[in-house]
Simulated scan of single mutants.
Amino acid sequence: MPTSRIAAVAAHLPERTRTAAETARELRARNRGLRLPTGLIQRMTGVERVHLRPEGWHASDLAVRAARQVLAECPGPVDQLIFASASQDLVEPATSHIVNAKLGLGAPVFDVKNACNSVLNAMQVADALIRAGQCRRVLIASGEAPTAAVRWQLRDHAQFVRSFPGYVMSDAGAAVILEADASGERGIVDTAFHSVSEHWAIGTLPGGGTIGGHDPDSTYFDMDGAGLQRVFLELGPEPILALLRRHGLEASDLDLVAIHQVALPYLPPIFERLGVPSDRTVITVADHGNLASATLPLQLRLAQERGMVGPGSLVLLIGLAGGISLGLMLVRM
């Protein structure tokens, strides 16, 4: 049975950015009664700036830009195209059709959506297709455009608090090519996915669904940031440690630990509990914000460019997503 190896990974970060200070100024200008202490966003999240897609760009355009990078680096036929993102161009049809048309591939398509774990779940599905012999090469493309759902006009302070996590969300594209590896020496070694779905209401973006309907107020993020952090902490390190134990590994055996990043202060306690050395991680949230499901591909690409990982390196991908879900993937590069 072939394994599925990561043949190429890429991320696209739009050049246009908005600093945390600019976000605060905009909020004050639009909401005269809002008391927003200077530097609050940076102190609370560690985020300095976020990326903004160009005018007229959609989620599919971000995905296409990243997909073209991986296809140029690793050319070949595509047996399946999966669009994996919390964002989408339309409710119907699947955004993968739009990406497919813009790339001119003519491949079979479908979408995978699971908030910030969308790319990780798409890799899980692609791995299964390759192991089953149905595909030899799968292109996963993500286009995250969460800045479209940021609330600028606020009713009161309580609504500001519920909207706060959205101010550090960032637009980005990402792409991954998985292909069959007959040697079995490289590829996805193991996966583990967990959910605590009773907490689904902690963070929502209901617009376009049957709950939110056509209510304009439902087109913005509504999140309990403290509640989200609490649930992730309650999950604890045991699922991650159990995955490592299955393979006789410790965190120090990993060349890279890539983890979804929402805010900088959350990370040190997590790495400390896992025993992850500081030189085995890539911090992206400070300079690029919360990139949703494009986070892990960006960290993996940066690690490659910095010489942290190469052929044979052992990588652990940790995905955290609203819903609430935890995704783990152990990969031999």
Rank of each mutant, 00 (worst) to 15 (best):
I41E: 08
E179M: 07
A115C: 13
L317S: 12
G187A: 10
N114S: 13
G227A: 11
P268A: 10
G46W: 05
E26Y: 01
L120P: 02
I283R: 09
T45A: 05
Q80S: 02
E234W: 07
G212F: 10
T147N: 08
L205Q: 00
I188Q: 06
L178E: 01
S293K: 06
P297M: 02
I188K: 07
P311N: 09
G310D: 13
V64C: 07
P54W: 03
A128E: 13
G166E: 04
H97C: 13
L81M: 10
A172G: 01
L129T: 01
P108R: 11
I202N: 02
L129S: 07
A94I: 00
C135P: 07
W152R: 08
E48R: 15
R151F: 06
V168L: 08
A8M: 11
D215Y: 04
V9E: 06
V47K: 03
I270H: 04
R28L: 10
D79M: 09
G76Q: 08
W57D: 14
A286R: 14
R230F: 01
R136L: 06
P216W: 06
M329F: 02
M223N: 12
I259R: 04
M333E: 13
G208Y: 06
A67R: 04
G275Q: 09
L52V: 13
H97G: 01
R18F: 00
L228F: 14
R35T: 12
V176E: 00
L249T: 09
R246E: 08
A84V: 00
S96R: 02
I283Q: 09
L244C: 00
I140S: 10
D224E: 11
R16L: 09
A86R: 08
E22I: 04
S163C: 12
D215N: 14
L40M: 15
G184N: 13
L244W: 01
A294T: 10
A263Y: 06
R155V: 14
R280M: 07
L235R: 10
L81A: 08
A21D: 14
G133W: 08
E55H: 10
E198Y: 03
T210A: 15
T295C: 12
L316D: 09
V125S: 05
A7P: 08
G327K: 06
N121P: 00
A294Q: 01
S313R: 12
A126K: 04
V189N: 02
G307F: 09
V138R: 02
L178H: 03
L36Q: 07
G184P: 14
V176R: 00
R280G: 03
E55M: 02
E15I: 04
P277Y: 12
V78K: 03
A182R: 15
